[in-house]
Design a protein around this nucleic acid. Structure first.
Lengths: 196, 196
DNA sequence: TTGACCACTTACTAACTAGTCAGTATATTT
DNA sequence: AAATATACTGACTAGTTAGTAAGTGGTCAA
């Protein structure tokens, strides 16, 4: 692992635990046994670092999407998505959407655009999963796949905050109900509902 | 309005726009035409300020709850709750739950406890509304009122992040669908479903 | 009118902040 | 062997940070 990658990894971790404005180049350098100037060598400004962190996270999500595409069971694919957040809840991290959303107005234009791109890609991926799942009768929901994707994404993002504040056990409660809502068309009847 | 109140008001605004670690006592003092030491006079440490901001926000919510209790129509009461967030979306603010959740680990123990109290109170209030609404046939949902309250609270909190990142119009989409989910028992059939 | 209290200001500190620049050791290329 | 590029270090700056301490002007009560 290169120094650049280590800075990005630690930078993202600090961003998602303490917040982007709660750590400095000194913190990064100290933890990686470097001088602060070495961090500036790789990322001239802190905003450039933020941009690279978001960009790297986009690539990570692309890799996830590619991996998830090999899973034919759409319900399991949804679970893979939920598991990303579940792992974050376990390590007291919030997601980049939550972290970058909070620090949004301290970023420059380019970085904001990158955050926008990341969120859009997540929503688009999730909406496609929901659309396909609805068409094949695996998922049931009202409204457009995109709106439903945003409801699920917001559930996941903020449940990481709730997990920090009220306790980790709350995450699973939220996630389980969310999946239930989508996967059990009619709980009290056995009839399957199909629309459009 | 006293200086103390002005500091709290501005502090909360900055916390919910820039983030708690993105403003300083100098920023507060400068905007209020004071010296930084005057801010320290009212709030000795920054964590004491955070505690007071959260505490004040709890009182604001208590006042809201008292006001909302006078509304007999539960659907309208839900709309009043959603309107709080709608106003925040319009002014590019995130809610205190979202802001405090992001900065959670930079707070001291007392302040964290106060954040926990705030979130718990919101969840308890919302769960009570849902329970009452389900019993009277106004709302329909699966799972416990508390879990459903957390799903709705997370939708509201993170939709403010989404509104910043993707645009304000996204908030209303999310809010409308959320209300629809709760208030329209069966969209394609006219049968009412009751459980427990 | 004295004294006490309140809400500050002035002046300060020590630590930290992002960011710069001139070097330097090491490897790679020519 | 010389030139070049990479990945740094050391030393630095100018500005900002939270926080302190001593003093000041005003109000109010005894």
């Amino acid at each position: 692992m290169t120094t650049r990658d280590e800075i990005l990894r630690l930078g993202e971790e600090l961003m998602r635990t303490q917040g982007f404005n709660a750590f400095s180049y000194y913190h990064l350098a100290d933890a990686l046994k470097l001088r602060p100037a070495a961090v500036h060598y790789h990322f001239p400004t802190k905003d450039a670092l933020a941009l690279s962190i978001i960009s790297r996270s986009r690539e990570t999500f692309h890799a996830f999407a590619e991996h998830a595409a090999r899973e034919p069971d759409l319900q399991k694919r949804l679970h893979q998505f939920v598991r990303i957040f579940s792992e974050n809840a376990a390590t007291d991290k919030i997601c980049l959407m939550g972290a970058a959303g909070a620090d949004f107005y301290t970023f420059g234009d380019e970085t904001r655009a990158e955050v926008q791109l990341l969120v859009r890609e997540i929503i688009v991926w999730l909406a496609a999963l929901l659309r396909e799942g609805k068409a094949s009768g695996v998922f049931t929901f009202d409204g457009t796949p995109r709106t439903r994707a945003m409801l699920i994404a917001t559930n996941m993002a903020a449940s990481l905050h709730i997990a920090r504040i009220l306790g980790k056990q709350e995450f699973q409660r939220i996630a389980d109900q969310l999946v239930k809502d989508l996967c059990i068309p009619q709980k009290s009847t056995s009839r399957r509902k199909e629309k459009s």
